[in-house]
Amino acid sequence: MQSVVEFDNVGLRYGTGAETLTDLSFTLYPGSFYFLTGASGAGKTSLLKLLYLAHRPSRGAIRMFGKDAVTMPRERMPGFRRRIGVVFQDFRLVPHLSTFDNIALPLRIAGIQEKDLKGPVTEMLAWIGLTERADARPATLSGGEQQRVAIARAVIGRPEILVADEPTGNVDPDMARRLLQLFAALNKLGTTVVVATHDIHLLNEIEGAQMMRLDKGRLSDPSGLLKNPPRPLVLKN
């Protein structure tokens, strides 16, 4: 099967400090669902940054969508980033844009016509339960509402890879389950999903999800192969 992402002996170092990520080698396949776990400071966010092309690695090779992402000219980066949806840990919503405009942003950046984006954005607003807050600014939304907007923004463009950093950290269990259902639905449509989380219970929510565990910047499986979770999981409704 053609891989979506390949890491080969990747290391990441910020400045002249010690390596934050060391010797990462793994492959992500289309339509797979991955949970990335590990203690705080293990390097989960750094690994996600490599996945959404916010950083280049200090060493090693990364291939994304069959192309070398390490030596890729920066002019080509936007095209690749549009194929990746990102849910940031701190949401990173544009503070002066409404909920509607924040969700519509990736589509507008991609050049989608206004008449074509109103339907999907309205539908997404309904899905995350924020139809009534379509005109609200992020500052007036609760943490959970902001997180839902951030997730909606990440998935609205039907990305090929969805990278989410603690996407359910600020929402109640019911909403967490709903959001995971959204991820699962996207995954079924072929999107590769990578979710970084502390919440061990989430691992049971998605059937067939695989787990990557980071420990002090290294994948805990030294072979670099991704493990299935210890027991089969069924998506709960």
Partner: peptide
Amino acid sequence: RETINIMHMLGGTDIQ
């Protein structure tokens, strides 16, 4: 800067 960073991460170009 933050808005521009977000645009970049969402696939915005320098020209945009």
